[in-house]
Design a protein around this nucleic acid. Sequence first.
DNA 1: TTTAGTGTTATACCTAACTATAACACCAGA
DNA 2: TCTGGTGTTATAGTTAGGTATAACACTAAA
Lengths: 119, 119
Amino acid sequence: MEISWNDRDPIYRQLHDRLVEMILEGTYRNGDSLPSVRQISADHRINPITVSKAFQLLVEEGVVEKKRGLGMYVMMGATEKLARDEKKFFLTEEWPRLVEKIKRLGLSIEELLEEGSVK
Amino acid sequence: MEISWNDRDPIYRQLHDRLVEMILEGTYRNGDSLPSVRQISADHRINPITVSKAFQLLVEEGVVEKKRGLGMYVMMGATEKLARDEKKFFLTEEWPRLVEKIKRLGLSIEELLEEGSVK
DNA sequence: TTTAGTGTTATACCTAACTATAACACCAGA
DNA sequence: TCTGGTGTTATAGTTAGGTATAACACTAAA
């Protein structure tokens, strides 16, 4: 797991997002164990507390389950839940704003599709 | 000028972005004066230093000109420059990522267009 | 029962990004 | 020259997010 940090967002947030991505991509599947706090902490030279914060978020979102003394596990159904949430967020929040932006920039979606970037 | 703050990004950044938006929308045009530091500071109960930071960014980007003792002015050509920059950023950075995301979500652009959200 | 792996927490310190309050420096117009 | 508008800056304090180092608590397996 490699992460290219930006300095706009807090590290625990970026780590959280990266883990979500990896679960969505199937790198970690339902029931799998995730890399340990110590492991991530060492790999990225990050404080364990910072790593814990990222996991804490995931736990609160119902994506990950902590087993003290054992590790962190992807909850059953997490992949589906994340995919559902992401889709919903995209449709209700991102897409409408995007359409506005495209209009404002004087572009059209048809035009963008011609660019060859899609096929 | 009303701003709904989020607590993800620093206030000076959000203020900066909002001002850029307003210039792009034509609320402030080339050569216009912008609301004063004190004005914005009072309206939003923000520290003048924070407001200054937002303006400082705009100055560095060549969008705004400071006239000490007078105020802040939209530079000539700023609107065009911003529009150009935003379009370029959108085409090279945002759109490609977006196309990927749409694919990943199992959606198609054709499908999204049918939603009636565009026309 | 020891060991080596888990997550958790305490202490102490740093920095960025704020806050409030106040003073300083500049400029145009009455 | 004064006044009321500009932007700027100093002081002092708060909070979130991070760092390093170390210790504590739990669990499975040798």
